Amino acid sequence: MKLKKPLLAIAGAFALSGCQYHVLAPRGWVGGQERDLLIISTLLMLIVIIPVLVMSVYFPLKYRAERPDTSDYDPSFEHSNKLEAVIWGVPILIIVALGWYTYVYTHRLDPYRPLDHLEAGKPVEVQAVSLDWKWLFIYPEFGVASVNELPIPAGRPINFSLSSSTVMNTLSIPALGGMVYSMAGMETKLHLIADHTGTYPGRSAHYSGPGFSHMTFNTLAMSDEDFLAWVAKAKSEGEPLTRASYLTLEQPSIATPVRYYGSVEDGLFERVVGMCVEDNKVCMGDMMMQDMMGGGGLAGIPNAAAYDYDRKRAIDGFGNPVDLPSNLPELDTHAFLFSPEEICSVTPKETKTNVN
C-alpha cells in the first residue's frame, strides 16, 4: 500500500508526458543517429547533473547548524586548487565534448546532404507540399500523387523537396528522424530512409491554424514490389492532378481523407514553388528578376493582380475563406521623389540608380 501512491504518480507522469517513443526507437538511419546524439548529450550532462543533485541534499544535511560534530569546521579555509580544478575543469571538458559531438553530427545529419554514402539503392524523389490542412505528396518519377498518405520503399533513400501553399509548416516523421520547414515561395530539402517495413505516423510539427491537429499522415514503408503495386493502384484509381484540380485541393479543409492522383501535370511542383499555379500569375523567380532590374514603376500598377497571391488565400480564425476587396488603393503621386513622367521616362536600371 505504501507504494501505491508513488506508482500512481509515476503512471500519471508517463500518461501526461506526451512522449513520442519513436524518437528513442527509430526505424531509420537518420533517426538512429539522432537518437545516439541525444543519448550521448544526456550522458555527458548527467556527469554534472547527478553530482549536483546528490550534493544539494548531502551538503545541507552534513553541514547543518545543529549537527552534533563540528570538528571539521575550518574558518580559515579560503581556497583549494583541487576544488577549483574540478569546478572549472569538468564543465569545460563537458562543453568541449558536447561541441565536438554537435559538430560531427550536425554535418553528418545535414538535411540537405543526400544519403548516398549508405549505398542503399536508387533514391526515390518525393515532392511534398503543405496545404491547409493536409499534405500533398508527388512522385515525379512515377507520375502519381497522394494526399495524407506517404508510401515509400523500405531500404531506399527518400529525397524530399518541400514547399508550402500558404503558411510555414514542418514535415516530421519521428520514427525516421529529422524535420524541415516547408515555406511558400521556397524549396527546402530533406533526406530520410526507412530501414524496416511498417507504418510510421507523420505530421506537421509547426502550428498552422485551426486544422493543425488533423494535419497528419501515415508513412507506409513497404517492399519494392508492394510499392510498385501501390503506384499501379494509384495510376488506375486516381484522378489527374492538374493545375485546376490542385487549386481545388488547395482550398482549406480539415480531416481530409486519403486521396490518390493517377497522373501529375508536368511542372506543377515548380509552379507551386513559384507561386504561379493560377493563370496570369507572375512566378516568383520572374518577380525577383524584375525587382532586381528596378521593378515596374508606376506603369506596372495596372498589372498588380498578376503579382497578388495572399489575397485569395486569406482565412478567418475558423479556417473559412475571407473575401477581401480586390480594388487597389488610389495612388498618391505626391509621395514619390520623382513625378510619374520622370519615372516612366527612364529605364528600370536608371530608376534604381537614381533612387539610391
Rank of each mutant, 00 (worst) to 15 (best):
Pro340His: 09
Phe227Glu: 07
Gly238Ser: 06
Leu37Gln: 08
Leu53Thr: 07
Tyr58Gln: 07
Leu337Gln: 11
Tyr105His: 11
Asp74Cys: 03
Thr199Asn: 14
Asp291Lys: 02
Pro153Lys: 01
Asn356Ser: 07
Ser172Pro: 01
Glu149Lys: 09
Leu337Ala: 10
Arg313Gly: 08
Ser71Asn: 03
Val167Ser: 03
Ser146Gly: 15
Thr106Pro: 02
Arg64Ala: 10
Asp74Gly: 02
Gly238Trp: 00
Asn303Gln: 08
Ala154Gln: 01
Gly296Glu: 00
Lys2Gln: 06
Arg311Ala: 09
Ala244Trp: 07
Lys62Phe: 10
Leu171Phe: 02
Ala244Thr: 15
Met292Val: 07
Arg27Asn: 11
Thr248Cys: 10
Ala244Arg: 13
Gln20Ala: 08
His214Ala: 05
Ala13Glu: 00
Leu268Val: 12
Ala314Gln: 01
Trp135Ser: 01
Ser56Val: 15
Gln251Asp: 09
Val264Met: 13
Gly294Asp: 09
Gly209Lys: 03
Ala305Leu: 04
Leu8Phe: 02
Val90Pro: 14
Val258Asp: 15
Tyr58Met: 12
Pro91Leu: 07
Tyr200Lys: 01
Leu162Ser: 06
Val57Trp: 07
Val104Lys: 07
Leu46Glu: 11
Leu247His: 11
Asp266Glu: 10
Asn356Ile: 10
Pro157Tyr: 01
Gly198Pro: 04
Thr199Gly: 09
Leu324His: 01
Ala13Asn: 01
Tyr307Lys: 01
Asp226His: 08
Ser213Leu: 09
Thr242Met: 06
Val129Arg: 12
Tyr103Glu: 00
Ser71Gly: 15
Ser339Asp: 13
Phe227Ser: 04
Met275Trp: 05
Leu8Met: 04
Thr197Phe: 00
Ser208Phe: 02
Asp308Lys: 07
Asn327Gln: 05
Asp69Pro: 14
Gly121Arg: 06
Leu37His: 06
Ile343Ala: 04
Phe269Leu: 14
Ala221Lys: 03
Asp308Gln: 13
Arg271Leu: 14
Phe338Glu: 07
Ala221Met: 02
Pro91Cys: 12
Asp224Tyr: 00
Lys82His: 09
Tyr112Glu: 14
Ile315Gly: 13
Ile47Leu: 12
Gly185Ile: 10
Lys189Asp: 12
Gly262Phe: 05
Val124Asp: 05
Ala229Pro: 15
Trp135Met: 14
Pro26Thr: 10
Gly99Arg: 00
His334Gln: 15
Asn280Trp: 06
Met168Ser: 10
Val346Asp: 04
Asn159His: 12
Met183Thr: 13
Thr333Arg: 04
Asn327Tyr: 04
Val231Ala: 15
Thr170Asn: 02
Leu136Glu: 04
Asp286Ser: 12
Leu220Trp: 01
Asn356Tyr: 03
Val282Gly: 00
Ser213Pro: 07
Glu330Arg: 06
Leu131Thr: 12
Lys189Met: 04
Thr353Ser: 06
Ala335His: 09
Pro210Gln: 04
Ser326Tyr: 12
Arg156Leu: 11
Tyr246Glu: 10
Ala65Tyr: 10
Ile193Arg: 05
Ala184Glu: 01
Gly274Ala: 15
Tyr73Cys: 07
Pro51His: 13
Ile254Trp: 06
Phe14His: 11
Lys235His: 14
Pro123Trp: 05
Asp69Cys: 13
Trp230Asn: 05
Val180Phe: 00
Phe142Val: 14
Ile343Thr: 09
Arg203Pro: 00
Ile301Val: 02
